[in-house]
Simulated scan of single mutants.
Amino acid sequence: MNAADSARERGRFEALCMPFRADVFRFVYWLCRDRALAEDVVQETLLRAWRSLDSLGDEKSARPWLLTIARRELARVFERKRLPIVDIDVANEAEPDSLAVNDQHEVEDMRRAILKLDVTHREPLVLQVLLGYSTEEIARHLDISVAAVLTRLFRARQVLRQQLLGAEGSRS
């Protein structure tokens, strides 16, 4: 590949993929809850996208294509990664206030409640609420039926409602 072709290919990649970088980061962050890990996964996602740019058939589907790559890359990270285990009693004895949540804002309550959701329910909710996907797009992206998406969204909202009502009741 000559310099002109390389520059053209890079321009195509940047035009297709870079506008969705923030969406990919938000998606991965909401799934993994770790900013540094999300940044690493986004970088790896863009690298994989660059290497397989020719596999993108329809340029209009760049966003779901990138999100699929990101989701798979995050899964690869967790397949390889051994998470450290912390004894909660030891952590509580060492710094009992460090485990307490002092932020009482509704947005923070909602954020924490979403992060507590199982990934099976959190992922379609994030795709719908943060990224604006329709139920049909979510179904295609997750490779499940529309009915399964609707069920997961319903259950996610049900759990959120229970968590938030419980949090409000404990404040009174």
Rank of each mutant, 00 (worst) to 15 (best):
A3F: 11
A4I: 13
R8I: 11
R10C: 07
E14N: 04
L16W: 03
C17V: 09
R21M: 12
F25I: 01
V28R: 00
L31P: 01
R33K: 14
R33F: 03
D34L: 04
A38C: 08
V41M: 06
L47I: 14
R48G: 03
R48V: 12
R51V: 06
L53W: 03
D58G: 03
E59W: 06
L67E: 02
T68P: 00
L74A: 13
V77G: 00
V77Q: 04
R82Y: 03
I85W: 07
D87K: 06
D89P: 00
V90D: 12
E93T: 05
E93G: 04
E95T: 09
D97P: 02
A100P: 00
V101L: 14
Q104W: 01
H105F: 06
V107E: 15
E108R: 08
E108G: 09
M110R: 14
R112W: 00
I114F: 01
V126Q: 00
Q128D: 07
L130Y: 11
S134G: 07
E136R: 13
R140S: 10
H141M: 15
I144V: 15
S145D: 06
S145H: 02
A147M: 09
L150T: 12
R152H: 12
F154W: 11
F154Y: 10
A156E: 01
A156I: 01
Q158A: 09
V159Q: 10
Q162T: 10
L164T: 00
L164C: 02
G166C: 11
A167H: 02
A167M: 11
S172F: 10
